[in-house]
Design a binder for these strands. Sequence first.
DNA 1: TTAATTACTGAACATTGTTTATGTTTGTTA
DNA 2: TAACAAACATAAACAATGTTCAGTAATTAA
Lengths: 180, 180
Amino acid sequence: MFVKPMGILERKDREKKKMRGLILKTAMKLFLEEGFENVTVRRIAERIEYSPAAIYLYYKDKDEILYAIHEIGFEKLYKQQQTILSIKNPWKRLKKHGSNYINFALENHEYYDLMFIMRGPAKKIKEKEEWEIGLRSFEFLKKNINECIKAGYLSKVNLDVAAFAFWSLTHGIASRLILC
Amino acid sequence: MFVKPMGILERKDREKKKMRGLILKTAMKLFLEEGFENVTVRRIAERIEYSPAAIYLYYKDKDEILYAIHEIGFEKLYKQQQTILSIKNPWKRLKKHGSNYINFALENHEYYDLMFIMRGPAKKIKEKEEWEIGLRSFEFLKKNINECIKAGYLSKVNLDVAAFAFWSLTHGIASRLILC
DNA sequence: TTAATTACTGAACATTGTTTATGTTTGTTA
DNA sequence: TAACAAACATAAACAATGTTCAGTAATTAA
């Protein structure tokens, strides 16, 4: 019996990932430029110089590409939020947290739509039960708010309620800024 | 030369309006049940027992039906908001204003999506420059907030900023409640 | 009754997402 | 090497979509 040479399997794996990455990158670019609904699988395929059918060998359907982008969006948001850790004053940090969030929404507003506003992906997320990535950002916010409470900047408020209201406010501002 | 008998023209006009109403009502019902994107022109036509092409004699395209619903949604919201006028205390009234808004969003959340969350119609609105109906509700909010300020419930805040923040907060809460 | 206007439709068009039957390249085994 | 298997990729087709248009039926006018 033969042992399969690892090099080949690894290369295949690499190539598969590369292909998925290529599709994703191309789809992202198109989605950001023209919005999810206005991009066809055919156009993505054309860009990467493959047949439309090839896409379906790497992603189950069009929605799954969107879902992958969704994950990337949350990753971006989380990374951007981490930058405020250098601010020592909890209150200043929380304010920066909010303005950062709004800036993120404005600068990546197509991402933002995909993440929070459009209903389409929301369905997908519930099915998949993979909201952890989104929740991570919310936990980070709660941590920041908690430190504001401990430092006496917010008096006698329930942590969850405060976090919910804070996110709602920033999200509301962002949505209104995007839509108007 | 003959003068056209008015009765016939009036009847025709009535019938035209009736037909538009029938299409709208049917489309609304379907949109509310299944979402704009999942309803086809063919299904609307089928429901009213006309050919798909007939729809296009009364509405330019599918989006225009959505736009008409959009207007109705704002009308509903505005009417519902008016009910708080009976509350004399400005602060209580403002709080009711907010909870009403959230209730409206939850109870008519498909409407609400069409009005604020989905991007599709937003494009349409900008083209048409008919945001007046939406703005009317915002003006009403500003009036309420202004009276809170005058009555000393809100100290030293800019009216527009306060109104903006208030709507953002309620909108944010509503959006999050709908999406989660 | 005939002509003109209006209301409507059937059939078709161009696109969409997706699947399937088929070929083609690459890897494995003898 | 030759023969077989697996992976990869595609062309072609499918079903469904929004929309249009030539033509038909119904209504109104002369």
